[in-house]
């Protein structure tokens, strides 16, 4: 049979998915073992034991002075900023995106502006944010909003415009006002698409979060990574990076599940 027609069964599929992970892990462990064999104090490629003891220290040991768990505090601080930023982004983009997508006057007025604004590199205006709102929490949250909202707004405007014209006319012939069309036709159909948009924005949101934390913060996952970099603490950095990746992945899966269960019509409607 042709290669394009051959499909792996479930068990083989799992095995195939595990292979790249196993290869990366194996390559790392071998390289680490070689370096550690040459110099037991090597910090560049720490082994599993070193990383485990670092995690033990960071995640499961109370700080004697403050009674806190560092990794937990870092995680909570970062998640708070991330969720605040994304929450504001979602709210703004949902309202603006639907209004602009539906109303031609708003479209003519705001689409060029949003297009221009979305070209501003968010990190380039981080200094402006620091100057205006200080280096506290606000600047980090605002950076995430500025970094993700324009994309989500533009995405949503396009999704609203994709609603078939026949559907909009149909709604009007059933007696719906602009407000009623927004409420009963557009908003319910945009909610699952907003989740898609949010999933795509998760990556950029993490970039802006880590960047802002790296530059100015007292706690947070990004702050910690850049802090311990000064001591070449790869045994802390690598577990932190894995942890951030795991968090981002978990968000993505959660959003996908939410979409599937909250909007059962959505998968079928794509092909309608």
């Amino acid at each position: 049979m042709r290669l394009i027609n051959r499909y792996p069964d479930k068990g083989t599929a799992r095995l195939l998915a595990a292979i790249p992970f196993a290869i990366v892990l194996a390559v790392y462990l071998i390289a680490s073992a070689i370096r550690l064999a040459g110099n037991p104090d090597d910090k560049l490629l720490p082994g599993l034991a070193q990383m485990a003891s670092a995690v033990q220290e960071m995640a499961f040991t109370q700080d004697p002075a403050t009674g806190d768990y560092l990794m937990l505090d870092d995680t909570l601080a970062s998640l708070e900023r991330l969720l605040a930023g994304l929450g504001i982004s979602v709210a703004i983009s949902f309202i603006v995106g639907i209004a602009v997508g539906m109303i031609p006057y708003l479209r003519k007025m705001l689409v060029p502006f949003i297009a221009a604004f979305s070209m501003v590199p968010p990190l380039a205006i981080l200094p402006i944010l620091f100057i205006i709102v200080g280096i506290g929490e606000t600047s980090k949250v605002v950076l995430i909003v500025i970094g993700t909202a324009p994309f989500m707004i533009r995405d949503l405007i396009m999704r609203v415009e994709e609603i078939p014209k026949a559907q909009m006319i149909k709604a009007q012939t059933l007696g719906a006002s602009t407000w009623a069309i927004a409420l009963r036709v557009v908003v319910p159909q945009m909610l699952p698409r907003l989740i898609d948009s949010l999933r795509l924005s998760l990556g950029p949101a993490w970039i802006y979060l880590i960047s802002a934390e790296a530059i100015a913060a007292q706690e947070g996952l990004g702050y910690r990574i850049f802090l311990v970099r000064r001591y070449f603490s790869m045994d802390i950095i690598i577990p932190y990076v894995l942890w951030i990746t795991l968090l981002a992945f978990a968000f993505d899966v959660a959003l996908r599940l939410l979409q599937r269960f909250a909007f059962p019509w959505f998968a079928g409607a794509k092909t309608l």
């Binding site: 026949a166 559907q167 149909k170 159909q189 019509w265």
Partner: peptide, 10 residues
């Protein structure tokens, strides 16, 4: 219409 006459989310 020929298509898109009903609302897919309802």
């Amino acid at each position: 219409f020929q298509r898109y006459s009903v609302f897919p989310h309802l």
